[in-house]
Amino acid sequence: MSLNITVCIKPVPDPDYYDKITIDPVKKTITRAGIPTIINPVDKNAVEAALQVKEKLGGKVVVITMAPPNAEENLRELLAMGADEAVLLTDRAFAGADTLATSYALAAGLKKSGPFDLVFTGTESADGATSQVPAQLAEWLDIPHLWNVQEFEVEDHTLKAKMSMENGYINYLVQMPALLAVKRSINKPRYTTVMGVMKAKKKPLTVLTAADLDVEPERLGLQGSPTKAGDIFTPSLARKGQQLTGETEEIVEQLIQVLRGAGLNLESLNVNEAGRE
């Protein structure tokens, strides 16, 4: 069994810097100057899942993204991690896309870049975090999908997979070709090695524009997006706080007063606790 596996990834501003993001009050645009772009964290779990399938059953792993031209760097990193080929969809016509238009362009890119038995994505991106692209991509591709996958096995052309949900999970059988959106706890992504980085330089990286794809132009980008963005703002989370100071015991004494003031009955809890032990 040799499988064609495609992984969709997204370069995102590093989540560790989100408190540095500001809004230009006049132009109403988001300012993210100086924030590094990284591969969306859970997308590395998707690549790891793909590599594990390939190692077990054989095949090829293609990584694909729709992003600005400098995303080549992020794709090279995934080629170094072990992916075989990379595809970058980049065109001004893709700009301003919501999830429906993004998944439409990605679906066209996937079809263009060859056959696929399995498609992996992460559950959500760190920046927009809509988590909507996986399901919508599967719809455009007309293949079944599962979202929030915490475990899976490939058996012939069938997947056995677990969709995680609040306080439990559901087990499914899914016919391939299929798309799985995996969650962070599914695996630990491998580190890249020096050898991997060397090899990555020679692996194919194809750049495609809208003209290379079989698409209806009105379904792309801002024009193809049914949702429209209105006003943006940064909510204030600031509270007028007081600081407790002193030696540890003094701080704890003040803290006890604060907790009592908030209506916590520490004595009764204490008694109950003692009674239980």
Partner: peptide
């Protein structure tokens, strides 16, 4: 926007070719 809802809503949006504002 539960695990089920986050899966169902975008799928439904794609079928109906309409917009879904997420979470």
């Amino acid at each position: 926007a539960t695990a089920i809802g986050q899966d169902l809503a975008p799928m439904l949006g794609a079928r109906l070719k309409t917009g879904v504002a997420a979470h």
